[in-house]
């Protein structure tokens, strides 16, 4: 059962880390608001459930669109700074500000929703709504399916379409891409929209897994960054690798620690991902996908 939880968690982390990596590659902005994007999705799913009785699984397409809009708005508000060549510190502060605005909006909305529904909606879970197949939770299948669909879609987009090749080209070398006639601005816009959309979907699935409060985004952002950094912020595939490494180790190591030292250790999940992240940064600053494996092999065999 613990492995089931680890896989579900990893799947969601992959969705979130992928968005973070994508926008980092295209615009060089480490986005601290990525976690809150997801929580926006969670509350929209809650609203659809409470007001219209729509099962959260069915509202995923709506969340995709809502998330996309949040991502778009973020990019538009960062754009004046990007245009001015603001330093990366300033851009990070700007995303912290956007995160705070989102937290305010989510918090305010949760109370408004509570008044409409007539009971408090500040905290909620969807786990009780889930179905099960062969004793496994539905979210295991759904989240895995979403990740597979996403990877398949991304593969088709990036390797089989003209826009995708252009997207990869502008990620690698934006100024050369411009000389080819690619509108780099469009690819940036796209990356933010997609990043928000993926986070929105992750937000619809997250409440099946853990309790949501308005500030949950600030908590999961550590794991998201850990996943992206461990995998390597410079490669999209890094988010996939990092998502599973962080997701599984956070779940498993914490679980075994708790087994050995008591339930108090369950709260140390974030510490585990933090330690893995720092260790990665010190050994391989550009993450697993940033390592020159040929060199490593050479060094190993030459000894």
């Amino acid at each position: 059962m613990i492995i089931e939880g680890a896989i579900i968690y990893s799947n969601l982390l992959v969705l979130l880390a992928l968005g973070l990596t994508l926008t980092y590659i295209t615009t060089n902005v480490p986005n601290f608001a990525q976690g809150s994007y997801a929580i926006v999705g969670s509350y929209v799913a809650l609203t659809l459930l409470k007001l219209f009785g729509i099962c959260p699984y069915l509202s995923l397409p709506v969340l995709f669109i809502v998330g996309a809009i949040v991502g778009l708005l973020t990019y538009l508000s960062l754009k004046p700074l990007i245009k001015r060549n603001a330093s990366v510190e300033m851009l990070m502060i700007a995303t912290l500000a956007i995160d705070l605005i989102l937290l305010g909006v989510i918090g305010a909305y949760s109370e408004v929703l509570s008044q409409i529904v007539g009971s408090t909606q500040a905290k909620f879970v969807f786990a009780n709504l889930d179905f099960s197949i062969f004793g496994f939770r539905g979210i295991l299948f759904v989240s895995t399916l979403v990740v597979i669909l996403l990877l398949f879609g991304l593969y088709l987009l990036l390797y089989k379409t003209k826009f995708g090749i252009a997207l990869r080209a502008s990620m690698e070398n934006p100024s050369l891409a411009q000389t080819m006639g690619i509108d780099v601005e469009k690819t940036r816009l796209f990356s933010w929209i997609l990043s928000g959309a993926l986070a929105g979907v992750a937000g619809g699935l997250l409440p099946f897994m853990q309790e949501i409060v308005p500030a949950t985004g600030d908590l999961i952002i550590i794991s998201i960054f850990a996943a992206s950094i461990v995998g390597g912020l410079r490669h999209i595939s890094g988010a996939l690798i990092g998502g599973y490494i962080i997701g599984i180790s956070e779940s498993l190591i914490t679980y075994y620690l708790a087994m050995a030292f008591g339930a108090g250790f369950l709260v140390y999940g974030k510490v585990v991902s933090l330690i893995i992240m720092i260790a990665t940064l010190l050994i391989a600053p550009y993450g697993i996908t940033g390592v020159d494996w040929k060199k490593v092999r050479k060094r190993l065999f030459s000894q």
């Binding site: 090749i165 990869r168 080209a169 690698e172 070398n173 050369l176 891409a177």
Partner: peptide
């Protein structure tokens, strides 16, 4: 320099 896309 950098006149081709290395990853492509």
């Amino acid at each position: 320099t950098n006149n081709v896309f290395a990853d492509l």
